[in-house]
């Protein structure tokens, strides 16, 4: 009886500790939420706790200022994530499931690119896009995600595809399934969690990127969200902090939907990937 009570007490203390940690972790998010509905005077007097009345009008100013960046980010995010998923899953399938001379060598040539750090490639990559005349276009935002992301994507997906039982593929081939259909109709549906993980990581990367867009894009109408917030919105509304935070909240909305929709896939894929070194 005594030990049982001790366990209950200990579990409760652990819950208490964990709840404090979670509150500290999420506090900055809540700050953003309630600053976004203050007026300027209320913000000056009490920035760190919620106050009434709520000024929802901040959001209409903020939305007008960031809607263009939101559209750009959703467009760039959708195209590059779809491209990345297709290219890396197809290539990973070939490396994992098909037999051909030079397979290991070609795979190593792809994986070796993971050892090349961004600092070595940043400037020359900029110059490649410069000489191809792609600066200031959507392409300079889309291609790096598809091509650059495919290296890590292939690494992640090949390991997963290798783990699928060969018997399924043999059965499909015996039934007259073409190689492409074995990839598209057998392999892909079995790999949804890991594909979801890769998609979420890619979209978050695009949402967070500041430096590459602000370097390669000078036409502000093409900025993705983080670069647009940093290069334009922060300056335009520097005297009206609540509107700034309304803009930050708007910028987070699509990721909130992504989180609600995909977090189970994401957790499942992430935990099954068994990341270690």
């Amino acid at each position: 009886m005594n030990t049982a009570r001790r366990i209950v007490v200990r579990q409760s203390l652990m819950h208490l500790l964990m709840i404090v940690l979670v509150i500290l972790l999420l506090y900055p998010l809540f700050i953003a939420l309630w600053i976004s509905v203050k007026d300027v005077t209320a913000f000056k007097q009490q920035p760190w706790l919620p106050t009434l009345p709520m000024w929802l009008g901040n959001y209409s100013y903020a939305w007008k200022a960031v809607d263009r960046y939101m559209f750009n980010t959703v467009f760039v995010g959708a195209v590059s994530t779809a491209g990345l998923l297709f290219l890396s899953s197809l290539s990973a399938y070939v490396f994992a499931r098909m037999r051909f001379p030079g397979r290991e060598g070609l795979y190593m040539a792809v994986i070796a690119l993971m050892m090349v750090p961004g600092v070595l490639t940043f400037v020359p990559t900029y110059m490649v896009y410069n000489s191809l005349g792609m600066l200031d276009t959507y392409l300079v935002l889309i291609i790096p995600t598809i091509i650059g992301g495919s290296v890590g994507g292939i690494f992640l997906l090949r390991a997963f595809f290798n783990g699928l039982p060969e018997a399924i593929f043999e059965a499909a081939r015996l039934d007259g399934c073409s190689e492409f259909n074995a990839y598209w109709r057998v392999c892909m549906p079995l790999s949804l969690p890991i594909l979801g993980t890769l998609a979420v990581m890619t979209i978050i990367g695009i949402w967070n990127d500041v430096i590459w867009p602000m370097t390669t894009i000078s036409d502000e109408r093409l900025f993705t969200i983080s670069a647009g917030l940093f290069m334009k919105f922060n300056n335009d509304y520097s005297t009206n902090v609540p509107v700034l935070f309304a803009g930050y909240t708007v910028a987070s909305l699509p990721l909130i939907f992504l989180f609600l929709f995909a977090n189970r896939f994401y957790i499942e894929g992430l935990t099954s990937a068994g990341l270690k070194l």
């Binding site: 972790l25 998010l29 917030l229």
Partner: peptide, 17 residues
């Protein structure tokens, strides 16, 4: 799940906060 939640705010927004 709660620990993953901060993902929803872009890193830029975190830095501004």
């Amino acid at each position: 799940m709660l620990l993953l939640l901060p993902m929803v705010a872009p890193g830029m927004v975190f830095m501004m906060i």
